[in-house]
Design a protein around this nucleic acid. Structure first.
Length: 598
DNA sequence: TCTCTCACTTC
DNA sequence: TGAAGTGAGAG
């Protein structure tokens, strides 16, 4: 495997430290695109600082050290859980990813959610066989630009729109032992992308015409509740970068998808030239569509965008069989995509397709153009600038990548780094002292049999950040509507959690106000699923900035290093959520396809 | 640029 | 059999 990767290790609560970063790559030939992206050297230079680390910085385009020689992170905080192993991650379907990356990968985002293609799949080695791990994936903005496809190439079209809520997808088999993870290909094909800011399914929300970078995280933990204080190891594969679109812009990408995605087989060449044009579709009248909308349930929320953070993503409690139930590579689709021979055998045929002619537009666009964007801007309002501060803390690095589209105007790509709330060690320890007093998260159950949001720490009792704990607690406990299953769950946790019945369905499980993610439970296929969803009334992720100022030395040092000044701001809001997919076993082994209820 | 339905596909 | 995943094409 010749997959390059940027490998980072850090604590989710603390800014990354020089010792947290290592760069590695699999042995073997370096794909051409690696040279183009520069192996992340600028990242290291900026994060580590020239001459401030013993980490050897690879030169641009040079082979990076083999996994066996990865500089290992040194623990700098006593509470950190250090890896005793040396996980190595291989990206699967690298050839396919490479083909897409050369052209400039586009991922369609829809209101109802679309899967990624190629699917993000990795193979892990180097785990401690007995230890348990949680594997996660998220997608972060690659830079702060908005793009447009102009003259058959992607060009910067202005500043990025307000950032969407960050959500992290937990692999549904998590937690599982190292042995189990290493025995299979870890497939994230069930992760869905959407542009619906009100999405309740837990899909990853992205901005159209923005560039994104998927990331893979390994956490050595036997309980998802331990995520907040666990060390993350993050792997970035630059070739998986893509631009989110609502409709394909580059016909080459369209064709590549048609040629490789089994679900798009119907659009493939029949053999005698291109597939015949479809008969025109009879569109429903607008009136009919509207009537349909009114009668059925909508994914849209009636929530005021300004209260966006109050929303808990939900998910349909569909008990239908998911053809892609297994997130391992056991399904046919994944197998096909895994075989390089088949991928190789498919030639991209683009000769019959001409690039769309794009109307000439001004390069720069206001970020607030259009109703939707205005709404988003409004929704994020105050948070925007603070988020930018946050991102600048975490993403000070820039390195350029050029999409080989023949263009003379390369894209500028900023690879985002993990969002790490600049919080103190104290927070994590307080969290844990409470969690440790609890019983198992979900004992003796192969699936979550509760669906709801858990305002983990939202009551504020654990929070050194919150200055209005009684008020927060009150807000979180005034619903009075607590499902029996959730009561049971709370009892097991012995944790100050409060639930509020919310709607018909839910996937939502908000965990932390301070840990920068929501946890969301995907639909379970097992029995005993309460047809209700819950959401906290607490406003998650609100962190008084004053606390940043009294953060740890690490935080201060980090701010100092990159010249980030968060003083003067009142609140830092970091909306991130985690999707826990179905058939998740907490405290048990990974759910296997055969073990799921039928 | 986005949303919707359609025909076609996989499983 | 039918749910769910595809891009096309119209609006």
């Amino acid at each position: 495997c010749a997959t390059p990767m940027l490998h980072m290790s850090y604590h989710p609560f603390l800014p990354p430290q020089p010792s947290d970063f290592a760069i590695g790559a699999m042995l073997g030939r370096r794909p051409p695109f690696l040279s183009a992206v520069g192996c992340g050297k600028p990242i290291l230079e900026q994060l580590v600082g020239a001459g401030e680390s013993n980490i050897e910085l690879p030169s641009r385009g040079l082979d990076v050290p083999a996994p066996s020689s990865h500089p290992q992170p040194r623990g700098t905080a006593e509470h950190e859980v250090e890896f005793e192993d040396d996980p190595v991650v291989h990206l699967e379907s690298t050839e396919l990813w490479g083909q897409f990356h050369k052209i400039g990968t586009e991922m369609v985002i829809t209101k109802s959610g679309r899967r990624m293609f190629p699917p993000f799949k990795v193979r892990c080695t180097g785990f401690d066989k007995k230890a348990r791990y949680i594997l996660l994936m998220d997608i972060v903005a690659a830079d702060n630009c908005r793009y447009k496809f102009h003259n058959s190439r992607w060009m910067v079209a202005g500043k990025s729109d307000p950032e969407m809520p960050k959500r992290m997808y937990i692999h549904p088999d998590s937690p599982a032992t190292g042995e189990q993870w290493m025995s299979k290909i870890v497939n994230f094909h069930k992760l869905k992308l959407t542009n619906n800011i009100s999405d309740k399914h837990g899909f990853t929300i992205l901005n159209s015409m923005h560039k994104y970078q998927p990331r893979f995280h390994i956490v050595r933990a036997n309980d998802i509740l331990k995520l907040p204080y666990s060390t993350f190891k993050t792997y970035v594969f630059p070739e998986t970068e893509f631009i989110a679109v609502t409709a394909y812009q580059n016909d080459k990408i369209t064709q590549l998808k048609i040629d490789n995605n089994p679900f798009a087989k119907g659009f493939r060449d029949t053999g005698n030239g291109r597939r015949e044009k479809r008969k025109p579709v009879l569109q429903l009248k607008v009136k009919d569509v509207e009537q349909k909308k009114d009668s059925g349930s909508s994914d849209d929320s009636s929530c005021d965008p300004a209260n966006y953070f109050l929303q808990v993503p939900t998910v349909a409690t569909s008990t239908s069989k998911d053809p892609c139930e297994s997130d391992t590579d056991s399904d046919g689709e994944a197998k096909r995509l895994t075989h390089p021979s088949e991928v190789k055998s498919r030639e991209m045929s683009t000769t019959s397709r001409q690039p769309k002619e794009q109307p000439d537009e001004t390069l720069q666009r206001e970020a607030t153009n259009g109703t939707e964007r205005q709404t988003r801007a409004k929704a994020w309002g105050v948070q925007k600038s603070l988020l930018n501060v946050h991102n600048s803390v975490l993403c000070p690095e820039h390195f350029k990548t050029t999409l080989d589209d023949g263009g003379d105007r390369p894209l500028t790509n900023t690879h985002a780094h993990p969002y790490c709330l600049p919080t103190s060690t104290f927070v994590g320890q307080q969290i844990m002292s409470n969690i440790r007093g609890s019983t198992r998260f979900m004992p003796s159950q192969s699936h979550f049999n509760f669906i709801g949001s858990v305002p983990f720490m939202a009551a504020g009792v654990l929070s050194p950040w919150s200055t209005n704990l009684p008020a927060d607690r009150e807000r979180c406990s005034d619903s009075g509507a607590i499902a029996a299953s959730n009561q049971e769950f709370m009892g097991q946790l012995e944790f100050p959690l409060r639930f509020q019945q919310h709607g018909p369905i839910s996937q939502g499980l908000i965990i932390s106000q301070f840990f920068p993610y929501n946890y969301m439970i995907a639909p379970t296929h097992g029995p005993h699923i309460p047809a209700a969803s819950y959401r906290p009334r607490c406003r998650p992720y609100t962190v008084p900035v004053g606390l940043l100022d009294r953060g740890t030395a690490r935080t201060d040092a980090y701010h100092s290093k990159f010249g980030v000044d968060v003083k003067g701001s009142s609140v830092v809001t970091v909306p991130v959520s985690v999707v826990v997919d179905s058939k998740l076993e907490i405290g048990g082994g990974p759910a296997s396809p055969t073990s799921r209820p039928t």
